[in-house]
């Protein structure tokens, strides 16, 4: 079953444009969008989740249309944005309670408790978000994206700001989440992360897909993903 079906997406900015971007993604995948800074990774995620509008193209996400009805799309998915700016003056618990209320979750207390426990946020649960470190804020954003157990989650730079221990834990969690039949689309420029956890990747440059395939396909020509990525990007220059 296809969870994402995007065709002919175009978006133009002053310095770069996304040209004729198409993507289909079926369930049970951990899909990575890779690319150098400014290649359009975050823009693609924002377009697919209805946060910004494409100038052209059609999108279907879990049977909803993020161009026409972004709220409906956001109700069904989870998003971890690139920037960590949750409301400054709520505590961690209050923020998750707020999310639970916005998403009309049942058994919210149990779910919040689970996430505080899983992400080792118990000591910070009554801390105001403004006082948290970037890594802890990132953990809070992880919790808000998964608390309603969506079938599809979009993550913009998933492990940035997290310490190595939490990174390891989150990588395992993401793989287990996908193994249950859910799908994750993440964007990153940390190639080792993608190499380790993604089933499939696409490499973007200046809004154009240069490669799409599995990690093993990318390794056919080179020893590792990093060499493949560097050569691909440099050849495009």
């Amino acid at each position: 079953m296809e969870l994402i079906k995007a065709e002919g997406i175009e978006k133009e900015y002053e310095h770069f444009k996304i040209q004729n971007f198409s993507l289909t993604l079926s369930e049970g995948k951990l899909f990575g969008i890779l690319g150098p800074n400014g290649s359009g990774k975050s823009t693609i995620i924002k377009i697919l989740t209805g946060q910004i509008l494409p100038s052209k193209g059609n999108i279907d996400v879990l049977g909803t249309n993020p161009i026409r009805d972004p709220i409906k799309t956001k109700e069904k998915i989870g998003i971890i944005p690139e920037q960590e700016s949750p409301p400054s003056f709520l505590t961690v618990t209050e923020y998750l309670e707020f999310i639970a209320k916005v998403r009309k979750l049942s058994h919210a207390k149990t779910k919040i408790h689970h996430w505080l426990d899983f992400l080792e946020l118990k000591t910070e649960k009554d801390s105001i978000i403004k006082n948290l470190s970037r890594g802890t804020k990132q953990k809070v954003l992880f919790a808000q994206a998964f608390i309603h157990e969506p079938k599809l989650v979009f993550i913009d730079e998933p492990l940035v700001n997290l310490d190595p221990l939490v990174q390891k834990k989150m990588k395992s969690f993401l793989q287990e989440y996908v193994a249950k039949g859910n799908t994750i689309l993440l964007s990153t420029h940390i190639l080792s992360t993608a190499e380790e956890i993604c089933d499939e990747i696409c490499i973007l440059k200046n809004g154009k897909i240069l490669f799409r395939g599995s990690i093993s396909e990318s390794k056919k020509e080179k020893k590792n993903l990093e060499d493949f990525f560097v050569e691909l990007i440099e050849n495009e220059n």
Binding site: K46, T49, Q51, I71, K72, K74, E75, I79, I80, P81, Q83, S85, P86, P87, S88, I99, V102, R103, Q144, A145
Partner: peptide
């Protein structure tokens, strides 16, 4: 100044 764009709000 807080970010809500990722939520169904």
């Amino acid at each position: 100044m807080a970010y809500y764009n990722h939520l169904p709000i």
